[in-house]
């Protein structure tokens, strides 16, 4: 697929969203609500469950997959409360030595008057700081759209993975084309230039690995094979991260991001 086709495909409503992956991978999932400051942002779903035998905190940006659920989840564009709920539960995970899994699927943090007034930039900034030093293993997976700061806010992790048809970018190709070339019909050219596909980003060592995406068209047997593979991989990574002393883990995470764009 061309880069821009990947971007367009990542926005399809019939794709698996965060809740689908949670259903597939996590047992006994209990959703928890609220940021304890203002409200409960439904663009972010978060809770505790088990990945195989391992208790885990899961945070996902949820788009929903029909018009009713898409409206309910604000099309996966979080307000500051969403990031604050995520931070609250990450700290709770750290307190109880539980690892964290983030599932990212957002065109971007919500751009609205209320979101700005409640500190969208501050919420993302705080999340980046918190995650950079969280003393528990964090794995993030970009499962669809990885749109700019709103996606990055949950992507600071020990392992950052992407599905093979997801994208991760500083700007949407449409906005990039509009800003640089005054016309969004060059979005395909912008998508190429931004190097935003999983393959491009793996090559540049921004992400650690690429996983296959799940398909609603699969039969039960295929889904089970897929599920086993993904669970085994995640379990193995959590196992090796859990063995590291917390300070070494944080130090490793620092170095991982420190080297990006270093001269």
């Amino acid at each position: 697929m061309e880069a821009y086709d990947i971007v367009k495909n990542s926005r399809n409503a019939d794709r698996w969203c965060a809740s689908d992956y949670i259903k597939l991978l996590i047992t006994d999932f209990l959703e928890l609500h609220g940021d304890r400051k203002y409200g409960d942002d439904k663009a972010v779903i978060a809770g505790i469950g088990k990945l195989l035998d391992r208790p885990i905190t899961v945070i996902g940006i949820e788009k929903g997959n029909d018009i009713v659920s898409r409206l309910e989840h604000n099309f996966g564009s979080a307000h500051p409360e969403g990031y604050r709920k995520a931070m609250r539960l990450m700290k709770e995970a750290e307190k109880f030595g539980r690892p964290v899994l983030c599932l990212i699927d957002t065109a971007g943090a919500y751009a609205g008057v209320d979101a700005e007034e409640r500190g969208q930039g501050q919420a993302i900034a705080e999340s980046l700081m918190l995650m950079s030093s969280l003393r528990t293993p964090v794995i993030s997976i970009i499962i669809g759209e990885g749109g700019s700061g709103g996606a990055l806010a949950l992507a600071v992790s020990d392992r950052l993975y992407m599905l093979d048809d997801a994208y991760f970018s500083v700007v949407s190709p449409e906005n990039c084309a509009t800003i640089l070339w005054k016309n969004n019909k060059y979005a395909d050219k912008a998508a190429d230039a931004l190097k935003l596909t999983a393959v491009d980003l793996k090559e540049r060592e921004i992400i650690d690995d690429v996983f296959k995406t799940a398909s609603s068209a699969w039969d039960e047997k295929t889904i089970n094979i897929y599920k086993e593979k993904l669970l085994t991989k995640l379990d193995k990574e959590y196992e090796s991260l859990a063995k590291m002393p917390a300070l070494d883990l944080v130090d490793m995470r620092y170095k991982k991001y420190r080297r990006i764009g270093r001269v």
């Binding site: 500083v170 800003i179 640089l180 620092y254 991001y257 420190r258 764009g261």
Partner: peptide, 18 residues
């Protein structure tokens, strides 16, 4: 962020924040 550096510019947010 500087669009011409794509993901590298986005990642500077993380690097500086850390």
């Amino acid at each position: 962020a500087r669009m011409q550096e794509g993901i590298f510019s986005l990642m500077q947010m993380t690097k500086v924040s850390a």
